[in-house]
Design a protein around this nucleic acid. Sequence first.
RNA 1: GCUUCCAUAGUGAAAUGGAUAUCAUAACGGUCUUCGGAACCGUCGUUGGGGGUUCGAAUCCCUCUGGAAGCACCA
Length: 556
Amino acid sequence: MNSFEKIKSVLENLAERAGADFSLDIPESSEHGDYATNIAFILSKQKGISPKSCADNLIVELQTKLADIVEKIEVAGAGFINFYLKDEIRTNEALNKDLSLNILNGKKVICEYTDPNPFKLFHIGHLVPNAIGEAISRIYESVGADVTRICYQGDAGMHVATTLWGIKNMGEGFPKENISLNEKVAFLGRAYAYGTKQIEDNADVKNEIIKINKSIFAGEKNDIYDIGKKWSLDYFETIYQRLGSKFDYYIFESEVSSIGKELVLKNVPEVFEESEGAIVYKGEKVGLHTRVFINKEGLPTYEAKELGNAIQKEKLVPNNDISIIVTANEINEYFKVVKSALGEIDKNLSNRIKHISHGMLRLPEGKMSSRTGNVISTEELIEEVKEKLKDKFEKARIEGKEKEQLINDVAVAAVKFSILKIAPGKDIIFDIDKSISFEGDSGPYLQYTYARLTQLILKCENAKIVNEKVESEKELEKLINNFSNILERTYKENAPQHMVVYLTQLTRAFNTFYGKERIISEDNMVNKYHLDLCNVIKNVLQKGLYILGIVAPSEM
RNA sequence: GCUUCCAUAGUGAAAUGGAUAUCAUAACGGUCUUCGGAACCGUCGUUGGGGGUUCGAAUCCCUCUGGAAGCACCA
């Protein structure tokens, strides 16, 4: 039992008598000790005395019970109780910090994220769900879950039909097989943009596209469709590799649409009903709005497919405990309707679904849209970041292929960091120049510190280790000891930004320490405490970066 | 019009109802003939307006103002 758990259990004992809830926190300011509790505010209410005098009474008992680990307990402010650990307790816990945390105990968790659409560009908007989904997956794994990563891709529907119509009608001719994957995908993008434009100008076009859509849904053989889909998927795969995501299963709309449609039809009229030729769910009965699940053409819409998707995930990962889905917040309202409808069919399944929504990635000019052609692909963005990095890597210690990979990893870190530092759900104004500025809080700053620290530790292998007593680094030790609490909070709130903020703090604290303390002396001596501390910090940084999906390079 | 979400230094963000609201950047001033300057230290500056609940509010409630998304067959 560590000091935090011990203090907590003593307080729980106190609170239990009164049946009260309280918190035990790690204060932001170091002037408030190692831990602080608000228990006096809670208990004072019941006793009808002031929080301050209540705290004064409590610390007498606390001091006796915690004498072995606590240096000092004091009442501060309006009635906070602050605990100051004995130095050797804090140091010992930090140097022996166990970074593993088992909360979920092997529970099966599904995480669906990224969800790009074949035939469309993998634009920078897809970076957001990818970065968040990958981080969430790793966060859950880090607290003991068995995570299955799933990517759901819309290979059927109007956007595909529009692209196919565009290919046929824009008059470019079908590309040869030997052009690059990028050019092939760009061709599909132009076809989609052309088709979308023509729909606006000509009503007949829409009817033709609807026809194509129907034929795809009916599963009619279509060579262009097959080739285009393969191009898209091959292209997506190259991007996942660069971003560091690997999916266990891919689910396609084409395979779940009939599952969804059947499920809807089977539940008419209990759950769904016919209205104006379509089959809808009347969400008004639960405070939502009506959504179409099967349109009057008899085709399942997004909503019905989403039901099919949910069923399919159950098949792939039977007996799962939590099913997470990461999507843009623009579908929040639809998703509520889908979830409510699903709840009427299968309450248990619906309850296990956890929707994490993220904001839009916006360019300063306005909303990005593949319809207008004002799009930046993920690839373009990463390439641009890499280009700007190249100067800085001129004096890098590695060369060739490894260097190429490193520059990619740093570029991805820069982008991922700028996404993950923002609480999911809020829009991200994506200013390219700012995102690739490596001054201050950034992915590359963390990576650089990690690389420097790794090299420092390597260098210590050739140094003489001395065991002299030096002053303990309280700030660093407290941060290290805080890791598990941060991880737990990051998991409970599905909030990667807590880990980002924490790693930034730890990195800065290390750099401050590094700046004021010479670790390896000029006559090649290292203090054992300093070396041990460096090793622990390295491990925490490595684990934290891994959780965020950011590569931790041992040299740069 | 209705529903949901949002508003924090010049800029971008963080903050379980807790203490003096943090962090970065910009600006300004320093450290250093580097244990790898993509470093460190210092100065400056913030909770949209008005009510309420609470020992305590950026956080909860009401209201106003401003913004975003959605509101039937796209996803």
